[in-house]
Computed example of a mutant assay.
Amino acid sequence: MPQLPPENVQDYPRPPALEPVAQRLRLILGGATVAETSRALRVLETHHAPTYYIPPEDVPATLIPARGSSFCEWKGVAAYLDVQAGGLTAPRAAWCYPAPTGAFRALAGYLAFYASAMDACFVGAEKVIPQPGDFYGGWVTANLQGRIKGTPGTEGW
């Protein structure tokens, strides 16, 4: 099975970059498929694990608007969603940018998911580890090198 090529998160750009994902992504909650796609996009930002965004038509799970929003200086205002699948509800487990700004307009309507809220998330055949901390939504894979933001003391980088 092919492995992901090595990438150093310290080499990712700032401002972040948006690129297509070559691998198939799969997310599971309660034994049910939350999403499965070969048409994802990912955001690469210095010291972050990649954040993966999935087209809404590849998400069979039920999504319910949740309270609150956040602001990204690059992408704009994010809306949050509860995710229901397999008889479970994961609160505020997904987010999207309904009207992203600038270079991130292609993300409009695409959905990102916190790996920590799912039973499992996969990039290709590899099960991901959630990015450290409870704010960032990156997915850590074995090919990533460098120091990944998210642990206490790294928020201000």
Rank of each mutant, 00 (worst) to 15 (best):
Q84R: 15
V9I: 10
E126G: 12
E36R: 07
A32M: 03
T141H: 05
G31A: 03
R14H: 12
D119A: 13
T51Q: 13
G86W: 01
Q131L: 03
A142E: 15
A78M: 10
M1F: 12
F113N: 12
Y110P: 09
A115M: 13
A103K: 15
V128S: 09
V123G: 11
D11L: 07
D58G: 08
E57K: 07
L27R: 01
L4G: 10
K149S: 13
F135I: 14
Y97R: 03
G137W: 07
V43S: 02
A108D: 11
V34W: 00
G31M: 05
D58K: 04
P56R: 08
A79W: 11
E73G: 15
G124R: 11
F104E: 06
E57M: 11
W74H: 12
G86R: 04
P60Q: 01
P60Y: 03
G138C: 10
S38A: 10
P20L: 02
L18C: 02
D134P: 09
P16N: 03
P60T: 04
F122K: 13
L88F: 09
P132Y: 08
A85C: 07
K149W: 07
R147D: 14
R14V: 09
G124D: 10
R92F: 01
Y114L: 14
R14P: 00
L111H: 11
G109F: 08
V59L: 04
E7F: 04
G87S: 06
A117L: 11
D82E: 09
T46N: 09
A142S: 15
A93H: 00
H47N: 13
E45P: 03
P2K: 15
V59M: 02
R39L: 02
A49I: 04
G138S: 11
S38C: 08
A66Y: 08
A49C: 03
Y53A: 05
V77S: 13
I28D: 10
C121Q: 12
P60H: 03
Q10F: 08
A99F: 09
R24V: 10
Y97K: 05
P65D: 13
Y12T: 04
A93I: 00
S38Y: 00
T141G: 08
E126W: 05
G133N: 06
S70F: 04
A22M: 03
G156A: 15
P13I: 00
P60L: 08
Y110E: 08
P15F: 03
L107Y: 09
I64Q: 14
K127F: 04
P5G: 12
E19D: 04
A142Q: 15
E73M: 11
E36H: 04
Y136N: 13
E19H: 00
G102A: 11
L144W: 08
C72Y: 05
A35V: 00
Y110F: 15
Y97L: 01
L25Y: 01
E45W: 00
W157D: 11
S116Q: 15
L44Q: 01
N143G: 09
